[in-house]
Amino acid sequence: MNIFSIPANVAVSDTGFVFLPTTGETFTLNEIGKEILRMLQQNKNLDEITEIILENYDIDRMSLEKDINDFLAQLKNYSLLVEV
């Protein structure tokens, strides 16, 4: 079950540019950040996301888990992610 969700109005462009219309704030995501955010938008859960990244990138599970947790904390900090 997915306990995170991305607010519906968050727009992510192909360049990794993020615009939060409610506050006017803008952000940049790196490539993996963009992929993860897109997957979260598609309501994939963390396990699915982890598997997909592991399959495509040269990284071990433990490191990825740490990084994803940190990334989610950053998104939350910027109100790009809400816990439901």
Partner: peptide, 14 residues
């Protein structure tokens, strides 16, 4: 196929 080079996911505020 060889996997892509990994970089920690990150978001930067402008």
């Amino acid at each position: 196929t060889s996997k892509k080079r990994y970089e920690r996911p990150v978001v930067t505020k402008h």
